[in-house]
Simulated assay, not measured.
Amino acid sequence: MSEKPSVLFVCVHNAGRSQMAAAYLNHLAGGRIEVRSAGSEPAASVNLAAVEAMLEEGIDIRSETPKILTTEAVKDSDVVITMGCGDTCPIFPGKRYEDWDLADPAGKGVGAVRPIRDEIRTRVETLIGELLPAGA
Rank of each mutant, 00 (worst) to 15 (best):
L132N: 09
I68R: 15
V7M: 06
T88A: 15
A22N: 00
I116G: 02
L102I: 05
P5W: 01
E98Q: 15
E72W: 09
E56S: 10
R114D: 04
V46Q: 12
V46W: 12
C85R: 03
G30S: 02
G30W: 06
S2G: 00
G84S: 05
A112H: 06
K95M: 11
C89L: 08
E57H: 01
Y24Q: 02
N14H: 12
E41Q: 14
D118T: 12
C89K: 09
R36C: 04
I61G: 03
S63K: 15
P93C: 12
V110Y: 00
E98A: 15
T126M: 11
V10L: 07
A103K: 10
T122D: 03
E56F: 01
P90I: 12
T122F: 00
E56H: 09
A134I: 09
L25D: 00
V124F: 10
T122S: 07
T82G: 15
K108W: 00
A43C: 01
I33H: 06
E119F: 02
P115Y: 05
A21W: 07
N26V: 03
V124H: 07
R114C: 08
P105S: 11
V51G: 02
E64R: 15
F9I: 12
S6L: 00
V80H: 08
A43H: 07
Q19H: 03
G111Q: 05
F92T: 10
I120P: 06
E52D: 04
R17Q: 13
L28P: 04
H13K: 01
I68V: 12
C11M: 11
V74K: 11
P133C: 04
A21Q: 07
I128W: 06
L8W: 05
P105C: 10
L132Q: 08
E64W: 14
A134L: 11
A50E: 09
G16R: 02
E130M: 07
E72R: 14
P66E: 06
K67G: 11
L132I: 06
V79Y: 14
G39H: 02
V7F: 06
A49R: 03
L48C: 01
P133V: 07
V10D: 00
A21M: 09
